[in-house]
């Protein structure tokens, strides 16, 4: 199994290099230069020309790329024009917020989705199954931002059960109070995200379990005299979790990218909101850093999925 993982990690290296070149070239292709907007508009063009020269902006692209990569490895992604803070600091703060929300949403999604999928498959074709399917169809067809707006209106303003914006209350002090406040801020968006995002898991698991139920190896197990209850436990459930496991690695990095809708509606200061603002304000250094980070997270997601899969499925291991 270590062989599989090692091979998989080695494959990632060229992927990362290509990704970083692409991101760099895209950033270079953006209009404007870094100085025109940030210094006195009456400044002598020759002065700008001089600054460009000092910062190596007339060098060939591969040399600039190399400088950029060296800085990258020193943890230097430049300064944000908008926030006047190093991009790395910015991402660290926002990243932590997003991480909590993502983990909370993910755990809830699985806690809701797995039993529902299993329950529906167990009662295949019956009323219980139909109800679960109707639930998934409904949650899938309603646009998510509508859900968020309705949710914030009902549970935030009308009932006043949950805070409607931010990631932590300004008045909370001390570790306990702060943690509780943070938790309070992610419950509503997390719950809505899970309730309306669980459709993939429910449907995947349902169809996998139904497939497994009718599979030849389950028939073999039945012909061994194994009670159905044990067949579910030893054969059906584990085999049906394969695609879910493969999906898990991918979905956590997707969530880490930040849900733009959720963060926007809840004014939750996470990565998604940061990205959106950066685009609005043409904050190029932040955009470049985030695009690179998202690309990296996607690669990590597939890596994680492959590793999980190689643990649970002997067929993809290299022995």
């Amino acid at each position: 199994m270590w062989k599989t993982i090692l091979r998989r990690v080695l494959i990632m290296i060229p992927e990362l290099i290509i990704l970083s070149i692409l991101v760099f070239l895209l950033a270079k292709a953006m209009p404007g230069d870094p100085f025109t907007g940030s210094i006195n508009p009456k400044a002598d063009p020759a002065q700008i020309h001089h600054l460009m020269e000092i910062h190596g902006l007339y060098d060939p692209w591969y040399q600039q790329y190399w400088n950029w990569v060296v800085h990258l490895f020193h943890g230097d992604l430049g300064m944000s024009y908008e926030y006047q803070e190093p991009v790395v600091t910015l991402i660290q703060q926002r990243g932590a917020n997003t991480l909590w929300l993502a983990l909370f949403t993910m755990v809830l999604t699985y806690v809701i989705g797995l039993p529902l999928g299993l329950y529906a498959a167990h009662h295949e074709g019956k009323l219980q199954d139909t109800l679960v399917r109707v639930y998934t169809y409904v949650t899938m067809s309603i646009p998510f931002f509508v859900v968020l707006v309705l949710g914030i209106w009902i549970f935030g303003y009308a009932l006043n059960w949950f805070p409607t914006s931010g990631s932590v209350s300004a008045t909370a002090s001390g570790l306990g109070a702060t943690t509780m406040s943070r938790l309070g801020h992610i419950i509503l968006p997390g719950l809505l995200g899970a309730l309306f995002g669980t459709v993939n898991i429910v449907q995947y698991l349902r169809s996998e379990v139904i497939d497994a139920k009718h599979s030849d190896y389950v028939r073999t197990a039945r012909s061994k005299g194994v009670p159905m209850k044990d067949i579910y436990r030893h054969h059906i459930f584990r085999n049906s979790l394969l695609p879910i496991a493969a999906f898990a690695g991918y979905s956590i990095t997707g969530l880490l990218g930040g849900s733009i809708f959720t963060e926007m509606v809840f004014s939750y200061p996470g990565m998604g909101l940061l990205f959106l603002n950066a685009i609005n304000f043409r904050d190029y250094t932040v955009i470049t850093a985030l695009v690179l980070l998202y690309g990296f997270l996607n690669l990590m997601g597939t890596l994680l999925s492959d590793i999980v899969l190689s643990i649970v499925d002997p067929r993809v291991r290299i022995e």
């Binding site: 599979s215 030849d216 190896y217 028939r219 073999t220 197990a221 012909s223 054969h235 584990r238 085999n239 649970v312 499925d313 002997p314 067929r315």
Partner: peptide
């Protein structure tokens, strides 16, 4: 059974 390819659980 007829089909030995699918009659065994692939994960065990």
């Amino acid at each position: 059974f007829q089909d030995p390819l699918s009659a065994l659980n692939p994960l065990k």
